[in-house]
């Protein structure tokens, strides 16, 4: 086991340093060695500075190693009670000397994206704590029920790589039951001012392989970028272990929007998508059972 572990870490080190991308697009033939990379989509590269065609983030010249920062979440009052306003505070520290980090890059028009998902998968919140003069991110939130919540922080410290860090917060009290295996639910969803349809390729998603998730929006007019992207997706396994944040792989403002997702395990997943149309943010979710190859 140890040799296998060392295999992994050495392979990882080599990969992180030497291969930031799968099959990068051919670069234009210019006499420069500068390569600009999207911090969010490292396979998007250019010889020139600019913005990522996929997610809109500014390309940067080279990327530092993807080192994980510390994210501390505190809540007041404590213990937090269901139905009562709670103040969430997020503090970021560097991983080397635990120094407070107070300067951040904008990611999709915000300094901090927060996702909250309840253990019964009924609660989904995507919002944006604000950076205070104390260098901490603050957000007031009402947890509607007792139980376990997974709270994801998505942020980008200066000089680092984008971070997606999960925390767990437990609201004392009688918790709702954890969901059983989710049944497949690809039925079209009527959201605020649009309808979302989902098809996948393959039709039966396979764990650890790429699944193309094609969303069709109706009506077709009036789609707008929301937070710098044509859509946002949060994928959560029913046991809340896997949490993945994705942006469209293919989108051009038309009604067809494709996300590519690699589901890690043969579990059922709830997939929330957000699209903006005529100034209104629409949120819908689908349930996707994932199987192992040959299952």
């Amino acid at each position: 086991m140890r040799s296998a572990a060392i295999l992994l870490i050495l392979a990882l080190a080599a990969l992180l340093a030497a291969a930031q991308t799968p099959a990068p697009a051919p670069l234009p033939s210019q006499n420069t060695s500068d390569v600009y990379i999207c911090p969010m989509d490292p396979d998007v590269r250019s010889h020139n500075p600019g913005k990522c065609a996929r997610c809109g983030m500014a390309l940067v010249a080279g990327l530092p190693d993807p080192v994980e920062y510390h994210l501390d979440l505190s809540v007041a009052p404590s213990p937090v009670k269901p139905g009562q306003r709670a103040s969430l505070t997020f503090a970021v520290h560097d991983p080397w000397k635990n120094r407070p980090v107070t300067t951040f890059q904008v990611v999709h028009e915000k300094l901090f994206h927060m996702f909250v998902v309840s253990q019964d998968l009924q609660v989904f919140e995507h919002n944006h704590p604000t950076l205070g003069s104390d260098g901490l991110f603050h957000y007031d939130y009402v947890f509607p029920k007792a139980g376990m919540y997974r709270v994801l922080g998505d942020f980008y410290p200066d000089g680092a790589t984008p971070q997606l860090i999960a925390k767990t917060l437990i609201v004392p009290g009688q918790a709702p039951p954890k969901p059983a295996t989710l049944q497949r639910d690809y039925a079209p969803k009527n959201a605020e001012n649009l309808t979302v349809e989902l098809t996948t390729e393959p039709a039966q998603p396979i764990s650890r392989s790429t699944t193309q998730m094609m969303f069709r929006i109706k009506p077709e007019d009036g789609l707008e970028k929301y937070l710098g992207a044509w859509g946002h997706m949060l994928v959560a396994s029913s046991d809340l272990i896997d949490m993945v944040h994705e942006h469209p792989f293919i989108a051009d403002g038309g009604p067809q929007i494709q996300f590519n997702v690699t589901f890690p395990r043969a579990k059922s997943y709830r997939v929330w998508v957000q699209f903006q149309r005529k100034g209104v943010v629409n949120t819908a979710h689908f349930d996707v059972p994932v199987k192992d190859l040959g299952q």
Binding site: L12, L15, L16, Q20, P22, P42, D43, P66, P162
Partner: peptide, 27 residues
């Protein structure tokens, strides 16, 4: 444990043809 970014990087590398990087970038 690996971070989501590290997992995605390895996954993308594996699924994307597993290219060899530039030796000058090796740790």
């Amino acid at each position: 444990a690996l971070t989501p970014e590290q997992i995605e990087l390895i996954t993308s590398w594996s699924q994307g043809g597993s290219p060899e990087g530039d030796a000058k970038d090796l740790a």
